[in-house]
Design a protein around this nucleic acid. Sequence first.
RNA 1: GCGGCAUUGGCGGAAUUGGUAGACGCGCCAGACUUAGGAUCUGGUUCCGAGAGGAGUGAAAGUUCGAGUCUUUUAUGCCGCACCA
Length: 917
Amino acid sequence: MDYNFNDIEQKWQAEWEKADIYKVPNKSDKPHYYVLDMFPYPSGAGLHVGHPLGYIASDIYSRYKRLKGFNVLHPMGFDSYGLPAEQYAIQTGQHPEKTTFENIDRYISQLKKIGFCYDWNREVRTCDPAFYKWTQWAFVQMFNSYFDPKTQKAQPISQLIAEWETNDPKWATMTEKEQQERLMNYRIAYLADTKVNWCPQLGTVLANDEVSEGLSVRGGYPVEQRVMRQWCLRVSAYAGRLLEGLERLDWTESLKETQRNWIGRSEGAEMQFAIKGQDEPFTIFTTRADTIFGVTFMVLAPESEYVTRVVTDEHKAEVEEYLAWVKHRTERERIADRRVTGVFTGSYAINPLTQGEIPIYISDYVLAGYGTGAIMAVPAHDSRDYAFAKHFNLPIIPLIEGADVSEESFDAKEGKMINSGFLDGMEVKEAIQAMKEYITNTGIGRVKVNYRLRDAIFSRQRYWGEPFPIYYKDEMPYTVDEKDLPLTLPEVSDFKPTSDGRPPLGNAKNWTYKGYPLELCTMPGFAGSSAYYLRYMDNHNDEALVGKAANAYWRQVDLYLGGSEHATGHLIYSRFWNKFLYDLGYICEDEPFKKLINQGMIQGRSNFVYRYIGEGATGNLYISYNLIDNPEYKDKVQPIHVNVNLVNNDVLDITAFRNWMPEFKNAQFVFADGTTIEDNPYLAGPKQYICGWAVEKMSKSMFNVVNPDDVIAKFGADTLRLYEMFLGPLEMSKPWDTNGIDGVHRFLKRLWNMYENIVDEQPTKEELRSLHKLIKKITWDIENFSFNTSIPAFMIAQNELSALKCNKRAILEQFAVLIAPYAPHLAEEMWHRCGNASFVVDAAWPECDESYLVEDTQKYPVQFNGKVRFTLECPKDTPKEEVEKLVMASEETAKYLNGGQPKRVIVVPGRIVNIVV
RNA sequence: GCGGCAUUGGCGGAAUUGGUAGACGCGCCAGACUUAGGAUCUGGUUCCGAGAGGAGUGAAAGUUCGAGUCUUUUAUGCCGCACCA
């Protein structure tokens, strides 16, 4: 009986679709469970074999949960607004909607072939007006809300207005524009002049997580700093809650740590320093208030608002020159070039404790966006201050006993304080505490918590994104009425910016609302992905993002699977977005994703041929990998990537290679045996050309991309699913190596062959033991997301049952259920072969009966000094003392004791015996 | 610099509470069937050694009757953050 995976898979996929068996109701007596995959951005290249890894794992889990009696929500959709489609549109003139939809269609067809149990009735697309209506709606809510620091919650901004109307006489006297400007300082979605990452090549600003080392993540173009008026989301207000919420999440420690770093909480103090000759003091932030006796200068960020106040006339020219120089530097230059730079302002601050005068400098090592943009410099105990002090010859006062600061600063928070007035003799930690109390009591400062997390810049000067539901009246923004949402993306004559530099929406006709101009920017990629998981719960609801009942039923994502590259972007933004909706009472859970697993990256496994470039090279001769270290070829070959699809088990398909590209048409080879003559390939094997290999990123340019469609055509979706899991632990990154796939494919064939003549006989004890061992193992594996170890367990069980010539329905039927999450098509066929008319998806997960696992005898490995010498078999539940007697009486023991006496005999019941000699 | 994760045969990896290291698969070797094999089946395959035996989980030390697993030090690789005061 042939394993005709093609027929089996197509047949069942059609049956499932016909019966709509993956449709999930929003109401059920069953317990609910929500399994979510991070939805993909449908790129033009289609899926490669790395993409479905997480989808397969979550599919196994979903199917398992369903078999366990849960109502499982397992949806899929598409993150379909974004830069690549628009860049492509600019290059080709094709509408991004067209290419996006084509890509989505391709993704869907690829995904469907793999046999996932997605409820496609729930599909969402972020570029669909019915979806982005709710993205815009959420933005309007953010515009109309403020963050109340007392309750640490978002509140309607009407409350703030009401309070000002009653308690702030100034409010009534303000013009509408002034009122709007004031409100703008409170709104959760607000307009502000901010320093942004401007990417000239992309023609847009980018969020911090979209920039890496001064280059755009998408495209790798240079990014520069610019001040622009932008929409921002007050994410930073939620910093404390975002940090604290991590405690309650079942995420990996490394991911939580990444988020903690990104949020960057630091506890310190704000302190006021008087400026000599001025009335108004200025404020600095420090985590080391204890070092105030060692302050020898102050530093302001170049963009600090204090700068104009402290610059004296004599230093004005010099300062302006420095500020101009700083301004022209790009982020990239600053990162690359960390020379100490700075300029003296001419002013002096007064140390509030010593009353000493300390010079005020400006330097770009102090960041305007963090703390107050001003610091007190303690060169002895901060390496950055130290470098600055050395450069400008400023004094360095050590504050910790025994610290040698002649060569470098002593940054550690340990040791006894010296030169520090009333702090002398204290440990650093005590001193920090004492100083905090001192500044609080004397009023020269206050204890303050600072976060590194910045507000999210939310404007993009692009076309292919959600339009802002905002229009401008008297230059102030107002929201489009909710009844008029969605505000649909208009057609434009050109996807590029307008000739006068306005964003592409400037090319749209009649882009107005109530006669006023609409916002020209669109929202960033993360807008649509920030609440999509809520929309799946109730995606056909026209009245709300998610209906109360649906949300109360599903509550939150129980299991979220995706790549770790979203640790600081998407996973921060959606937590923020979720908390905001929670505050306003639209949803019932404060955190969106209860448990989160990052699947590892699948790397490519590249293959190489070695072109001979030594003496007399024709450029047409290729040396087999096993020979390249021979003296005659060593250092005379050049590795060339070869398409991995032309290679099998590292053996090159010569004909396919010659046909691959014109330059290889006449390729000649030195084969593995050292000869160049191509003999009849049917004769005596090794006329083979062996390719070298390396693990690299999976990419087109390395010719190591493997398409799941090809794998499915050759081996079937079930083999693909099993093999992806078999590769290794889900969370590890690992290379895709098609070589091993035969093993699992053969296993499925052998399994399939067991279902030929099924009989209704009573299973034997051995058969039941095999089955129940398997039930126990697979259940444990799935519960613990250890999918890779299930495949060997199936193989072992199949081997055992096949050795027992098992063809009993009672066993084979259960086996089919167990393997159904992994290989759903084959399992369905096997299930039906056992005589079932229902779908295996609706079967019940088998329960392990431990009584079948009990063995009659117990094997004890017997160790001598920790080394196993032999095993002793004795009846089950032999008492400890009895086991010891049996061991000591054994001939083998006498042999290894060699006449000596054991010092000690350790018997661990049910486990092992160790004899110490 | 800070933080997280990893390191086990030729390769991917297994070992779930400290208890027989190398399961399972690939590859390789031998055999069977075969005109043929990139098909199928059987056996072998950590290293050294003919064997008895010895060594062995990146390295070093420690705890223990017993360590891949626990502790300390250290090396290498991957990932994240990084002038955040």
